[in-house]
């Protein structure tokens, strides 16, 4: 079984470009800086108080993991959002489509290339992550679950990036929309919950004023399930759970009005990982469908589609 042709080409071409190496260096630089600053403050504390605080070490693990997560959120859209539109800009997409490669194989190759970059990022950050093992407190299982979450997140964001790059003609536009989508996913879902919770609290308050009780009953209702799509919430829950919280959602439940009980809430991490994986798969299949000339009878670039709409 030979490796996907598009994937092999991507690897070869990107190994020649300095961009990715620079990004990798920047990524690990930031990560290492975060870890080292934290370690320094820890040691400083030891020197002044002669006490080692194990909670401080755990803190470092959390910070390093969070920085890694945040960087991944920032880097993945950039990697993925040029995949298809880049081919289009080089005018090679049509050439690829006339070969024996099916649209699915083309998208698969692009996906592998993006994920390859992601694994390189993750693996290259292992030395920094390994710092947290020096003092113990974190198990390999913990790290594995975090890794799983990072991979799922990357997959979903790659899916978004690929889809945008298929829909939009220009890489610039595709990247902008991908980032907007990520912001919406991470910030928008939380904001929506906060908003609905605010409305609900107001209602409860006016109701409770008559009865004279505290407004702790307010929730954001069905909106909370939007958060299943939010990788940041999943990540936060995982870290919370690993820090010994009884329920993964405790930390944010009050803040954004989650029911922290119920079938889904009890399995929040698992369910949200699955939801995100499924969205990733759907997005990737959607990408292949979008570029397949045969699947869309009136295949028109988005631009001329609008032009024609206006004309009619």
């Amino acid at each position: 079984m030979k490796a996907n042709a598009v994937y092999r080409k991507e690897v070869k071409a990107s190994s020649r470009s300095i961009r990715f190496s620079m990004a990798l260096m920047g990524f690990n630089g930031i990560l290492a800086a975060a870890a080292l600053i934290n370690m320094y403050s820890l040691l400083y504390q030891v020197r002044t108080t002669a006490e080692i605080q194990y909670s401080g070490l755990l803190e470092m693990y959390r910070i390093v993991a969070a920085v890694e997560f945040a960087l991944l959120l920032c880097v993945m859209p950039a990697i993925a959002s040029g995949s298809i539109s880049g081919e289009r800009e080089h005018r090679t997409l049509d050439l690829l489509l006339t070969t024996q490669m099916s649209p699915r194989q083309i998208v698969w190759g692009k996906l592998m290339a993006s994920l390859g970059d992601m694994f390189l990022i993750l693996i290259s950050s292992f030395p920094v992550m390994a710092l947290v093992f020096v003092y113990g407190g974190v198990t390999v299982k913990d790290l594995f679950i975090v890794f799983l979450c990072l991979v799922t997140t990357a997959l979903m964001i790659t899916g978004i990036g690929l889809y945008c790059s298929a829909v939009f003609q220009r890489t610039v536009l595709s990247a902008a929309v991908s980032y907007a989508a990520v912001v919406l996913l991470v910030g928008g879902t939380v904001a929506a919950n906060r908003f609905v919770l605010g409305l609900s609290t107001m209602r409860w308050n006016s109701y409770m004023n008559q009865i004279g009780s505290v407004a702790s009953q307010a929730t954001s209702g069905g909106f909370q399930y939007l958060l299943l799509f939010n990788p940041a919430v999943t990540f936060y829950s995982i870290i919370r759970e690993q820090s010994g919280s009884r329920n993964a959602l405790d930390g944010i439940a009050g803040w954004i009005g989650l029911h922290s009980e119920g079938w889904i809430a009890d399995r929040w991490i698992l369910v949200s990982l699955c939801v995100q994986l499924v969205s990733a798969v759907l997005l990737i299949r959607g990408t292949a469908r979008w570029i397949d000339p045969a699947s869309r009878k009136r295949r028109m670039p988005a631009k001329s589609f609008w032009r024609n709409r206006k004309k009619n």
Partner: peptide, 29 residues
């Protein structure tokens, strides 16, 4: 698609590939 060779009215080329690699890439396609 296997029976047709298509030369479009533009060139589709990649920046980072050499001529031989470009050809081998399409061969592998």
């Amino acid at each position: 698609r296997g029976l047709i060779g298509y030369v479009p009215d533009y060139f589709g080329v990649y920046e980072n590939l050499k001529v031989s690699e470009y050809m081998e890439f399409f061969a592998s396609c």
